[in-house]
Amino acid sequence: MPGINGRFDGKRVLADLNALRAIGAYKTGVHKPTFSEPHLRSLGWLASRLPDADLVATIDGIGNVLGSSAKAGPKLLAGSHLESQNHAGWLDGPLGVVYALEAARVINGDPGINGAVEVAAWCDEEGHFGSFLGSRSYAGAVTEADIDAARDRSSGRTMREALRDAGFAGRPRLTAEAGRHIGYLEAHIEQGDTLEASRLKIGVVTSIVGIWQYRISFIGEQNHAGTTRMAVRKDAGLALARFCVAIDDSFPALCGPRTVWTTGRITLDPGAPSIIPGGAEMLFQIRDDNPEVIARLEAQLHRMADEATAQG
């Protein structure tokens, strides 16, 4: 889209970001779980501003906000999301939405440009109810049964209830129109330190990692912590801890340059200070953009599990 004559307004961008930051503000960040009151207010805020970019605003039946243009020519879809993780940063999501909004204001309002920017804010990208339900719905990959089954991971509230309470029940879910867009662009704040450590201001995504998640369970023998000798204990929690250390010892020789792994949750059963855990469970995750690397690491996990089982 060459020949842009309008001017991007940095102050306007910051004002928009700060307006969204004020909705659901929590300490230095925000708290906007999907379909919470702050999230819904944020959706309304965006819908009210899309006409300023010559876009028609629609909030569809799954909570996506779409700004569509009647302008002739090629169209680029851009955006991100407006809900947040619990007690999270204020730029994760809104940065991409506001950048898209500003680009639409400038490009759509220039009669000398053949084409337009359309804006999207996908619902539930942070996975409170499922896995990318809003964007997957737009791609035609979410069924009504998927929505029936979706539950809020924190409260157990059904997605149907949330959609009803938000006033979105019964609305059609919008899906991508074949050939309408020349591409999709999403700006995002860096969530690591690669750019900062390299003293770079911007980067371009070259690949998207896959995420493999595992639930690893350990079965020991629950017993009294004060009377059971150390030599005869079958402590499931200790077995789990050793497994975590073994992962960190063995994975570096098998991983790739971009591999990361995380033990995100550990639970002990019964979880009392005076009882030797009879059961333990860890939720473990591996991320990499190379399936061959993942296959090596998964095979190592299975070898380690077999060895742990054989040792009793």
Score class of each variant (00 low, 15 high):
Arg157Tyr: 03
Thr158Asn: 09
Thr158Cys: 08
Thr158Ala: 09
Thr158Phe: 05
Met159Asp: 06
Met159Ile: 05
Glu161Asp: 15
Glu161Gly: 01
Glu161His: 04
Ala162Leu: 02
Ala162Phe: 03
Ala162Pro: 02
Ala162Arg: 10
Leu163Ile: 07
Leu163Pro: 07
Leu163Ala: 11
Leu163Arg: 07
Arg164Val: 12
Arg164Trp: 03
Asp165Gln: 08
Asp165His: 11
Asp165Met: 06
Asp165Arg: 08
Asp165Trp: 06
Ala166Gln: 08
Ala166Ile: 14
Ala166Tyr: 06
Ala166Arg: 10
Ala166Val: 13
Gly167Leu: 07
Gly167Val: 07
Gly167Asp: 14
Gly167His: 04
Phe168Asp: 15
Phe168Thr: 06
Phe168Ala: 13
Phe168Gly: 04
Phe168Gln: 06
Ala169Cys: 04
Ala169Pro: 10
Ala169Leu: 11
Ala169Ser: 10
Gly170Phe: 15
Gly170Tyr: 09
Gly170Trp: 08
Pro172Cys: 03
Pro172Thr: 05
Pro172Leu: 02
Arg173Glu: 13
Arg173Gln: 13
Arg173Phe: 06
Arg173Ser: 12
Leu174Pro: 03
Leu174Met: 09
Leu174Glu: 08
Leu174Cys: 09
Thr175Pro: 04
Thr175Glu: 12
Thr175Asp: 02
Ala176His: 15
Ala176Val: 15
Ala176Met: 11
Ala178Phe: 11
Ala178Ser: 15
Gly179Trp: 11
Gly179Thr: 08
Arg180Tyr: 07
Arg180Glu: 11
Arg180Asp: 14
Arg180Ile: 14
His181Cys: 11
His181Ser: 15
Ile182Asp: 01
Ile182Pro: 05
Ile182Glu: 10
Ile182Gly: 14
Gly183Pro: 01
Gly183Lys: 07
Leu185Phe: 13
Leu185Ala: 06
Glu186Trp: 06
Glu186Thr: 07
Glu186Val: 07
Glu186Phe: 13
Ala187Tyr: 10
Ala187Phe: 15
Ala187Pro: 13
Ala187Val: 10
His188Tyr: 04
His188Gly: 01
Ile189Gly: 04
Ile189Arg: 02
Ile189Phe: 07
Ile189His: 00
Glu190Cys: 00
Glu190Gly: 05
Glu190Ala: 00
Glu190Thr: 00
Glu190Ile: 01
Gln191Thr: 10
Gln191Tyr: 03
Gln191Ala: 02
Gln191Ile: 02
Gly192Gln: 05
Gly192Thr: 06
Gly192Ile: 00
Leu195Ile: 00
Leu195Asp: 03
Glu196His: 03
Glu196Asp: 14
Glu196Tyr: 02
Glu196Ile: 08
Glu196Val: 12
Glu196Met: 13
Ala197Val: 04
Ala197Tyr: 01
Ala197Thr: 00
Ser198Arg: 08
Ser198Thr: 05
Ser198Asp: 08
Arg199Met: 10
Arg199Gln: 14
Arg199Ser: 13
Arg199Val: 05
Arg199Lys: 08
Leu200Phe: 03
Leu200Tyr: 07
Lys201Ser: 07
Lys201Asn: 12
Lys201Asp: 10
Lys201Thr: 06
Lys201Val: 02
Lys201Arg: 13
Ile202Trp: 07
Gly203Thr: 01
Gly203Cys: 03
Gly203Glu: 01
Gly203Asp: 00
Gly203Asn: 05
Gly203His: 00
Val204Ser: 01
Val204Gly: 06
Val204Tyr: 00
